[in-house]
C-alpha cells in the first residue's frame, strides 16, 4: 500500500515538472497551449535517440532533453505562437490541437509508432526495502530531482527579480507593461523554460509513463487537470494538484483497474464544478 503511495508521489512529481510550464504560460499570457505535451515528447525522444544511437549515458542526456525542448520552445514561440496571443481561447485551442496532431503524425512517420524503451544505468535499477515498503531506486531519483526543481522554482518565483516581475505580469499584464516590465521577453523566456521543463519531464517520464507518438494526446488531459485544478497563480497549486492526481491515478490503476481513467476524469469534473477557479487558486475579488 505504501509502495503504491510512493509510486504515486514519483508519478505526481513528474507530472508537476511536465505541467508547471503550462500553468505559467496559461497564467501569464492567458494562452491555452494544448501542444505542451509535444515538447515533453520531444524531450523524451531526444533522450531515447541520444542513448540508443550515440550511446550517451542517461544522466548526460537529461540536460540535452531540456535544452532541445527549450530551444524548440523559443523558435516556435517566435514563429507561430506569438500571433495567437490576441485570439480567442477557442482559436488557441484549435491551433494547438493542430500542432499536437502534426507532432503525433510527424513523429510516427519519422520514428515509427512503437513504444520506446531505454536502458537505465545499473545504479538506478531495482528497489530496496525500508520497514517492508518497497522503494525503487529510479523513483527515488525522480522524486529527488523533481523535488529539487520544485523547491528551486518556488524560490525563483518568490524571491528573484525575474520571479517578482513574472508574478506582476501574471496578475495584470497591462499594468506590468506600464511599469516598464518587458512582458514579451519575459514570456518568451518563460515559454522556453516551461518547454524545457516539459522536455526534461518527458525524459524522466519514459520509464514511468511510456513514450510513443500519441504521448501528447494521451497526457494532454492530465496536464490540463493539473493546471485547471491547481490554478495558474502559484507554483504550489499545480504542485499539490499534480501530487493528488499522481497518487489518485496510480492508486486507481492498482486498486480498481477495471474503472480505468474514469476516476480521474470524474474527479476533475467534480473539482471544476466545486471550484471553477481551481482548487488551490487564490481567491480573487
Amino acid at each position: 500500500m505504501l509502495t503504491i503511495l510512493f509510486d504515486g508521489i514519483a508519478y505526481g512529481m513528474v507530472l508537476f515538472v511536465l505541467a508547471c510550464g503550462l500553468s505559467v504560460t496559461m497564467g501569464l499570457m492567458n494562452f491555452v497551449n494544448l501542444a505542451h505535451g509535444a515538447f515533453a515528447m520531444l524531450g523524451g525522444y531526444v533522450t531515447v535517440l541520444l542513448m540508443q544511437r550515440l550511446g550517451l549515458p542517461f544522466l548526460a542526456s537529461l540536460p540535452a532533453a531540456f535544452l532541445a525542448a527549450a530551444l524548440a520552445g523559443i523558435v516556435l514561440e517566435r514563429l507561430v505562437y506569438r500571433p495567437m496571443y490576441a485570439k480567442s481561447h477557442l482559436d488557441q485551442v484549435m491551433f494547438s490541437i493542430g500542432l499536437v496532431f502534426m507532432a503525433v503524425a510527424g513523429t510516427d512517420w519519422l520514428l515509427g509508432s512503437s513504444q520506446q524503451i531505454i536502458q537505465l544505468p545499473r545504479w538506478l535499477q531495482g528497489r530496496f526495502y525500508v520497514l517492508g515498503v518497497g522503494i525503487g531506486y529510479y523513483r527515488l531519483f525522480v522524486i529527488g530531482i523533481c523535488g529539487l526543481l520544485a523547491v528551486a522554482l518556488q524560490w525563483g518565483f518568490a524571491k528573484t527579480r525575474f520571479g517578482s516581475r513574472l508574478r506582476a505580469a501574471v496578475d495584470d499584464a497591462r499594468v506590468a507593461r506600464g511599469l516598464g516590465i518587458p512582458v514579451n521577453r519575459l514570456f518568451a523566456l518563460t515559454f522556453a523554460l516551461g518547454s524545457g521543463l516539459a522536455g526534461l519531464g518527458g525524459a524522466l517520464g519514459i520509464e514511468l509513463m511510456g513514450l510513443d507518438p500519441t504521448f501528447p494526446l494521451k497526457f494532454m488531459i492530465y496536464f490540463l487537470i493539473v493546471v485547471t485544478v491547481g490554478g495558474t497563480s502559484t507554483i504550489t497549486g499545480p504542485f499539490l494538484a499534480a501530487m493528488l492526481l499522481g497518487v489518485a491515478d496510480v492508486m486507481g490503476k492498482y486498486l480498481v483497474p477495471q474503472a480505468g481513467a474514469f476516476i480521474i476524469y470524474a474527479l476533475m469534473v467534480i473539482l471544476l464544478l466545486l471550484r471553477p477557479e481551481g482548487l488551490f487558486a487564490r481567491a480573487r475579488t
Binding site: K87, M94, F95, I97, G98, A103, V104, A105, D108
Partner: peptide, 14 residues
C-alpha cells in the same frame, strides 16, 4: 498520415 494534414489545416485556418 491523415492526422498530420488535419493538424496542418487547423493551424493554417486559425
Amino acid at each position: 498520415y491523415w492526422m498530420f494534414w488535419i493538424g496542418l489545416f487547423l493551424v493554417l485556418f486559425v
